[in-house]
Nucleic acid binder design. Structure first.
Lengths: 163, 163
DNA sequence: ATGGGTGCAAAGGTTTTGCACTCCG
DNA sequence: CGGAGTGCAAAACCTTTGCACCCAT
């Protein structure tokens, strides 16, 4: 399965005059080992140092992430000021969309699946001529845990005020 | 009108134990003078230096932008790795939504108005318990001009190849 | 008068870049 | 072999922070 990913990558790279290198393969492996996680360059760099004796430069990690994103192998999203990446589950013919729910209190990021934006993209093209290639939908708010904790904090504050 | 904005700001600040200062007023003025633009801290800083003799520190600009965003006076969006701000046109009872169309080639940012996300937010709450407070929808693609120019470039490349 | 606000400069964190060297195709 | 890729360190960039001083309320 991982080999499939790597072989597939080799093909994609070849078509664009890019080369398959051990570094690129190992970085792709990290993603295969961490499905559904949003990894930053630094985290990938650390993961590489930990599980392998090899030392891959941080700059190479950045360059590889850029490349793989350009190729559509990864999708990137900026969270809390840091770029994060995950395997791109959507292909041109099966746009497997998911959006991000970002908790303003604890920073947790959840995913939410919904196709909703396809008709909107058509409407945009019609009205503005803009050709949508990709999109990113983020929701900011409070997760269930934080809602509860915020309510508790509030109740406590009320109690203290009464003294 | 600008005075209304400033007076209104004074009220909002007062309620939160914050003070109205000349710096904050001037920064708000810049936004009133640049409607529908997405201004970065640096751009506001430059605008202040240009049109007034006063020197407002860049740190103050950053702190003011954070504050005004927290208060809901401004809305912020990260574009090309830089935070940008505009007057927040949406209020709790009239969520005047607009989304951003970002050209991957020339970097131009256009706005597109559509309410589409309200039902989705309800669905999110129902399915996940997450309470949406705000959202951000970005579309990446190619503006009309760049589509044309890309087509021209492609045609030219074909011609050259034929030689 | 007092706590919030400011300016400056320094520090912080992430990402990019220059350059010599390496290695895939 | 030649050009793409790499590692390292330095630089670039945006943003935050510490601190002494200032000024709205």
């Amino acid at each position: 399965m991982i080999d499939n990913k790597a072989d597939n990558l080799k093909g994609v790279l070849g078509r664009k005059n890019k080369k398959m290198t051990p570094q690129r393969r190992k970085i792709l492996d990290i993603f295969a080992e961490h499905p559904h996680e949003h990894l930053s360059a630094e985290e990938i760099y650390d993961a590489l140092r930990l599980q392998q004796e090899t030392s891959i430069g941080l700059a190479t990690v950045y360059r590889t992430l850029d490349l793989l994103t350009e190729l559509g192998v990864l999708s990137s999203i900026e969270l809390h000021g840091v770029n994060r990446y995950e395997l791109n589950q959507s292909t041109p013919d099966s746009p497997h969309q998911h959006h991000h729910l970002i908790c303003l209190r604890c920073g947790k990021v959840m995913e939410f699946h919904s196709p909703l934006t396809a008709p909107l993209e058509k409407e945009i093209r019609k009205q503005t001529g803009f050709h949508v290639h990709d999109h990113q939908l983020k929701f900011f708010g409070y997760c269930e845990d934080c809602q509860r904790e915020l309510a508790e904090e509030k109740a406590k504050a009320e109690t203290e005020k009464e003294e």
